[in-house]
């Protein structure tokens, strides 16, 4: 039996993702941190429709973030989130970085998927639910 979370990313790459996620979504105000909420278990689902080159490139980024000191990772995230402040020749790269990082972290966190985690579910924290009843059909 395997407890493997991802077939796309290595353990070190997943640790890089946890590091990024916890910077972007820390614990507080009733919210669990990114790594506490267990959503990383759905990382392969989140990446399933991505192009193989993008998955590879994202893996390199995660690995770099795993080995980089936390302040450097914070700086990368901050630069990506402020792409418009950069000159036009570098801004697209920063925007792509932001779409990649934020796209995965936010998608996982607010997916409501939790793996084996017993922490609060972010969707419950924001009191989100949708009803579509089909029993009358």
């Amino acid at each position: 039996m395997s407890d493997q979370i991802s077939k796309l990313f290595t353990q070190h790459q997943l640790q890089g993702l946890r590091k990024i996620g916890d910077i972007m979504l820390p614990a507080g105000n009733g919210f669990p941190s990114f790594s506490e909420c267990g959503c990383i278990a759905a990382v392969d689902t989140a990446m399933s429709s991505a192009h193989k080159d993008d998955i590879r490139d994202f893996g390199y980024l995660l690995l770099a973030c795993h080995y980089a000191p936390t302040p450097i990772v914070k700086l990368i995230i901050n630069m990506a989130d402020n792409a418009e402040r950069f000159p036009s020749f570098i801004a697209p790269l920063m925007r792509k970085l932001n779409i990649g990082i934020k796209g995965i972290v936010i998608s996982l966190y607010y997916s409501g998927k939790q793996g084996f985690s017993n922490s609060a579910n972010p969707l419950n924290v924001i009191d989100f639910n949708l009803t579509c009843n089909t029993s009358d059909l």
């Binding site: 759905a42 689902t45 989140a46 990446m47 399933s48 429709s49 991505a50 192009h51 993008d54 792409a83 801004a91 697209p92 790269l93 925007r95 792509k96 932001n98 779409i99 796209g103 998608s107 996982l108 607010y110 997916s111 409501g112 998927k113």
Partner: peptide, 21 residues
């Protein structure tokens, strides 16, 4: 689920970007 819908029903999970992103 929103994540499953994005991943299963859309090209690139709904994240196709323009060249300048």
């Amino acid at each position: 689920n929103e994540l499953d819908a994005n991943a299963n029903l859309m090209w690139n999970g709904g994240m196709d970007a323009s060249a300048d992103a």
